[in-house]
Design a protein around this nucleic acid. Structure first.
Lengths: 350, 350
DNA sequence: GATGGAACCGTAAACGTTTACGACGCTATC
DNA sequence: GATAGCGTCGTAAACGTTTACGGTTCCATC
């Protein structure tokens, strides 16, 4: 079922069929109608490989997301929501969206190179951006249209979209300081992901802005998972001089942290102030409600699509590529009360 | 950077280059070495469109997952984990995996047709199978290699893999009955998804097997989300004759249900026995621990990949397509205690 | 009636691969 | 020394499209 069959059935040339299907000008309206009708009737759709080969374009955009274990928690709901906004924008423009999962064992650079060199997509969206990310240098070097979901020190004038980590931390610290907190801990996953660095830097600056001193012992590295949050609770409880508040770089941690606190007979918000990061559905049912920050991932995804289309059309022209930081809005819960000094479990203090 | 450039650089014919790259027999080992070396040095990778066009095969498998709102909750962790097992198997065989998200506004059938007709992938994995699913008829009719993640009444002898819903319900009901429960509710999302029907049917049969009577009021339809679980709690509390136990078709509901119970001053396991479905990471931190069922989604994904490879190789031969039901193993928590009659909130009973 | 132009359509090349086929050179055999 | 066979390689066709180019028809104009 190729264009040839369709042409034969209609007794016209394949050139005309192609023009009719592609809405070109120089074709008789009546002919176009017949072609479209026959195509629908015979269930014809152009072979994408043929088109790609001829046009040098695949009509597809690849969204590369890592399947790492540490991102699995975050990634799930996060990337799905983003894709949900991204997809319709691309589809509107006649582009397919291929979500590509980079296997955990495979090098992200090698994976990306493979995708680009085999010409699987016209444009790429990369995520989980590292502080220095060679994928960006590679894409810039090969002049591949792309958008990064996350900032980086690499590259330079490439398009990216990112969340306002600085704003989140600044708001959190200042809010806690207003409540009277002077020892505010911060927990992040570390690693090479750039937002870990941004978070850490913003944390120090925010403390400074509030006139609070920085204590290295209060910057705690734990996975951004439920388990990580549980272990964070362990560590906080074991500290000789525990903080009165903790800010989480990943709200998923709150689930584990809450659990650990409850096990110790403590209540979040009363015995330890907790502020989470994103207002994710899985945390919406924590009790007491978690203070965190809202952002429409759907809108973010849509914007990502728009930028992608721009990059594809522009062909890497002289226009400044957009670089956007999306603010997040505080959602006040009841998890971040005034300081108390009850963090030691009752058993220990008895 | 095509095969022609590579051939020119090596001063041999493109035919030989192609044979060398594709590990064909009739090529001098020394020549092959030179070709591979040059390809690596010059960063050459065969253009996928060219290959596809010539071979009539795309070296890709499409994993079509819906982006519906009701599956968004389930889908997140579920599909990611499955993909994580699936991906390496395909990659080992030189196949790319494209995760395709069907936009919520778009008809699933139209989306699938588009994918198949444009020859985007050699094989398809479909999910969220409905009781009668025309996608299956379509794929069978067009002789497209595929595996369904979920049973259906449609099709017939096609390959599928599914979870053992019957076993889960039978185990849950019998376990609760042994604990002395006689009024056991069941909550599922309904809709056209086949597992809703399977669950409902299995529920009735399991009651019968235990000599318990079926009460339509105890089959409660709610979304398989946190919110759905919360509303389920509302409804249970409002019942004139509340059940002593409830089985959830989606463990995510447990999060909302727990919350609602706590708000009413009630404790899962003591005041209401709760059994969830899957042992998902998001429920692992519920307190008291949720009784649910374990299954390695990673293994399931791997098996899905193996079956896909089989289907692609077999070319739809005379062999029986595999149809597998994966058993799930009970993980005893503390959420399913003996019956009590304290479901009415203390305020109401006081 | 010759000419120009517009509207429409057919022809054929090109995209980058793979692969059937045949050609070449060499060695071993009778 | 002719021949067969093997190992290696080049040639060219084919996959399904799109598109530049030229051709045909028809109508309007001078």
């Amino acid at each position: 079922m190729s264009i040839r069959d369709l042409a034969r059935a209609l007794d016209i040339s394949i050139g005309t069929v192609s023009r009719a299907l592609n809405d070109r000008a120089d074709v008789n309206p009546e002919t176009r109608r017949r072609v479209l009708e026959a195509a629908a009737a015979m269930g014809y759709a152009p072979n994408q490989s043929g088109r790609s080969l001829r046009q040098g374009t695949t009509n597809a955009v690849a969204f590369m997301i890592p399947n790492d274990h540490d991102v699995a928690a975050l990634g799930n709901s996060f990337f799905m929501s983003v894709s949900d906004g991204l997809q319709p924008v691309l589809m509107e423009a006649g582009l397919d969206l291929f979500v590509l999962l980079c296997p955990s064992e495979m090098d992200k650079n090698a994976f990306l190179r493979r995708v680009v060199e085999r010409r699987i997509a016209d444009g790429v969206i990369i995520s989980s951006i590292e502080r220095q990310d060679s994928r960006i240098d590679y894409l810039v070097g090969r002049n591949v249209p792309f958008v990064a979901l996350g900032r980086s020190l690499s590259g330079g004038a490439h398009a990216w979209v990112d969340l306002d980590f600085e704003g989140v931390i600044a708001q959190s610290v200042s809010r806690l300081a207003r409540l009277g907190h002077r020892r505010i801990a911060f927990s992040s996953a570390g690693g090479r992901i750039n937002f870990s660095f941004i978070f850490a830097e913003a944390y120090r600056r925010a403390l400074e802005a509030e006139g609070l001193s920085f204590d290295p012992a209060l910057m705690i590295r734990e996975d951004g998972t439920e388990e990580g949050g549980y272990r964070l609770g362990d560590r906080l409880l074991a500290m000789p001089e525990p903080p009165g508040a903790v800010i989480l770089a990943d709200e998923t941690m709150a689930i584990g942290l809450y659990r650990r606190l409850y096990e110790a007979g403590l209540t979040p918000g009363r015995d330890l102030a907790v502020i989470g990061f994103r207002d994710s559905p899985h945390c919406r049912f924590l009790s007491p409600p978690l203070t965190c920050f809202r952002l429409s991932l759907h809108d973010l995804g849509r914007r990502l699509g728009e930028i992608m289309l721009e990059r594809l059309k522009g062909g890497g022209g002289a226009d400044r590529p957009p670089q956007e930081i999306w603010p997040m809005e505080l959602v006040a819960g009841e998890s971040d009360g005034r300081p108390s000094h009850r963090l030691r479990p009752p058993a220990a203090s008895a």
